[in-house]
Design a protein around this nucleic acid. Structure first.
Lengths: 177, 177
DNA sequence: GATCGCCTACCTGTCGATAGGTAGCCAATA
DNA sequence: TATTGGCTACCTATCGACAGGTAGGCGATC
């Protein structure tokens, strides 16, 4: 009957909570309430919080790349990244999951930090690849672009409006050299 | 005898902890241990966690501007900002205090969010002011610059090296138009 | 009959916060 | 000068709530 499995619904709830309040900003009981089960049942699907968020981060990374589809040119990829981050903010003022975990990484379990690290390694490499033809220093440009997007989300959250995100990222697609 | 007051030492400890693990990543007991007193004594100086971090954020904002000193040209200010953030990272992989709180702002007490908001309002206005003579859209440029700095800190933390921060922010002082 | 999904019930530890007390300091009073 | 009273700084002890995590049972499905 139910389209999505309970495990996925737990991950959905956790994703939303991490993006809103961070790793230490929610509990198993919160997730249980979100999903409509008991907290002990959450442990049945994910033994520890570290395991849960690690898996969540991996899923987020996979989905992030799957959502990019067929963009292969640099401008298209930057535009797609920008749109993806923007959409996250519009959906309940949410932060990029890995941006949040990256900020908090000084106080996180090792596996979570590692999964977050991997997200950024992949995203930067992916972007640098398509910048190789238009920039002399593709990796440097890619880092600058991703940094600007993550930072723009922080500013938008702190200020409470999308306009700040839009202003902070305006014209990005054309600053590729 | 002791140069700094206990209240200031509590704020110092809290600052370090927030920059490392975020608002929900430390406790009154942690601070008490850092300072060498009991957690009840921390409450004597700061009645609630919200009050403590609000005051901490205000102090951080004041110090941030005090540290900039006499820079009045755009390039000099951007360079000073960059150096300040870079130094925070070198000092124990710390995040910008307000960058951290901005990311977490969805799950913070109102007063803390407001204080964080104010930090960014001030910093953006301050930077835009000195960009007015060199850019057609000073506020937009200022937002982009601050975003890039905050995001670069996230990347550096996630990746664990200063090099990432340096690469992500290289040449900033010259991209002011 | 074994496995799966979820339950009740519970544990231990820690959280932010409070109550009430003690020791030292300092200024006013007698 | 001796005493009083109030203040600051910190303490012990405790609160109720909640954290992550565990043990074992129960009904449905394969």
């Amino acid at each position: 009957m139910s389209e999505v499995s309970t495990a996925d619904r737990i991950l959905d709830a956790a994703e939303s909570r991490v993006q809103t309040a961070g790793y230490n900003g929610f509990s198993f009981r919160d997730l249980a309430e979100d999903v409509g089960i008991k907290s002990a049942s959450v442990h049945h699907h994910f033994p520890t919080k570290e395991a849960l968020v690690t898996r969540l981060t991996d899923r987020y990374t996979d989905r992030f790349f799957a959502g990019l589809k067929d963009k292969s040119d640099a401008s298209g990829r930057v535009g797609a990244y920008r749109a993806a981050f923007r959409q996250a903010f519009l959906n309940d003022n949410k932060m990029c999951l890995c941006g949040m975990l990256g900020a908090e990484s000084g106080g996180l379990p090792g596996a979570v930090t590692a999964a977050t690290h991997q997200f950024f390694d992949r995203i930067v490499a992916h972007l640098a690849e398509s910048l190789a033809s238009v920039s002399a220093k593709p990796r440097q440009r890619a880092l600058a672009i991703v940094a600007r997007l993550e930072g723009a989300m922080i500013l938008a959250r702190a200020c409470g409006t999308v306009e700040v995100f839009d202003e902070a990222t305006r014209g990005m697609e054309d600053e590729l050299a």
